[in-house]
């Protein structure tokens, strides 16, 4: 029985992919435009920054932590890039390196507060969510820096030659494979699942809990900053409010992808599937002229369903476990 439930939970990835196919098929049949290449180009461009952030965030959430500041790091990265461009730094590699360093720093601050001072990541990153967004406004005010060379802005969204799909998808795919390998086929990944389920037992097995979490915060910050560069170039605009509220879309995708908000469970295939699923759903409903408010309701309902779904399995599993008699006796001092 336990084995059967376990397998069902393991196939959450599969459920997400089935849902994705269903949504695509129903959408293509009933909504004009969903089958068009333009639609897919748009879905993918929207999904790229979400996927880039969701990759490290998935690993972080599996260890039982969370980072709510990702969209603010993205915004800060945008404004710093804009500010540097406006003040005459016109080398793309330099801009990328500076933004990357900024992301590393932002992630290190989050990681330090959580691992050194033992503060809950929810509280720390709500704080830095406001802090980093505030710094973005300090950097650029309400100005927009938009005069990038078209070779950059077009280059960011250019299609693969002969197709309409943006070439960036290859970069994201490589990154996704990299993260998936780390999570599912390396000693580091084994450690992440152990930490997420029981960090004390992990320490007793020689897993460097604090160090691991710290570097995951750093990776999340760095990837968020990279997403900021893409965001700036795609919209040809660096503004302090870039990506405002994007953390919800990212976390929704991670959770819908089957990652437990309590840590210890989930995988990257489901998360990537969920990123695409949410993107298709949003854009298809938009095409069908569903009002924006209703769109928010759909995303919200899916988010709740994704938290309830795997947890219902977990609760069932816990019930099964509780029914087993334990043989431990209380110790007497």
């Amino acid at each position: 029985m336990a084995e059967r439930i376990r397998r069902a939970a393991g196939s959450w990835d599969f459920l997400v992919l089935v849902a994705l196919v269903l949504v695509v098929v129903i959408g293509a049949v009933s909504i004009e435009g969903v089958a068009s290449p333009r639609f897919w180009r748009f879905v993918i461009l929207e999904a790229i920054p979400i996927a880039v952030i969701a990759l490290p965030l998935t690993l972080l959430i599996i260890t039982g932590e969370i980072d709510l500041s990702v969209a603010s790091v993205l915004g800060l990265s945008c404004t710093v890039m804009g500010k540097l461009w406006a003040s005459g730094v016109h080398s793309l590699p330099v801009l990328v390196l500076v933004c990357l360093a900024l992301g590393v720093l932002c992630g290190a601050v989050n990681g330090l507060f959580v691992t050194r001072f033992g503060l809950p990541s929810l509280a720390v990153t709500i704080g830095t969510l406001a802090l980093y967004r505030g710094l973005a406004y300090v950097t650029l005010g309400d100005k927009a820096i938009a005069d990038y060379p078209t070779s950059w802005t077009d280059g960011a969204v250019a299609p693969i030659p002969g197709l309409t799909i943006p070439w960036m998808i290859i970069v994201v795919a490589v990154l996704a494979i990299l993260f998936a390998v780390v999570l599912h086929a390396t000693p580091v990944g084994r450690g992440l699942y152990a930490i997420g389920n029981n960090d004390e037992a992990s320490r007793f097995a020689g897993v460097a809990v604090g160090k691991t979490k710290f570097w995951l915060f750093v990776a999340t910050g760095a990837m968020s900053a990279l997403a900021g560069i893409f965001w700036t170039l795609r919209f040809a605009s660096a503004r302090a409010d870039n990506g405002n509220g994007l953390e919800l879309a990212v976390i929704a995708a991670v959770l819908l992808g089957g990652v437990s908000i309590f840590g210890g469970r989930g995988g990257l295939l489901g998360v990537v599937g969920a990123v695409v699923l949410l993107g298709v759903l949003r854009n298809a409903l938009q095409l069908a002229d569903v009002p924006a408010n209703a769109l928010t309701i759909v995303t919200g309902s899916l988010l709740i369903a994704s938290v309830v779904g795997p947890n219902a399995v977990a609760i069932a599993r816990a019930r099964l476990r509780r029914r087993r008699p334990t043989t431990s006796i209380p110790t007497t001092p």
Partner: peptide, 9 residues
């Protein structure tokens, strides 16, 4: 249960 094993794994 708390230190020796990760019970869910």
């Amino acid at each position: 249960r708390q230190q020796g094993l990760v019970m869910e794994l």
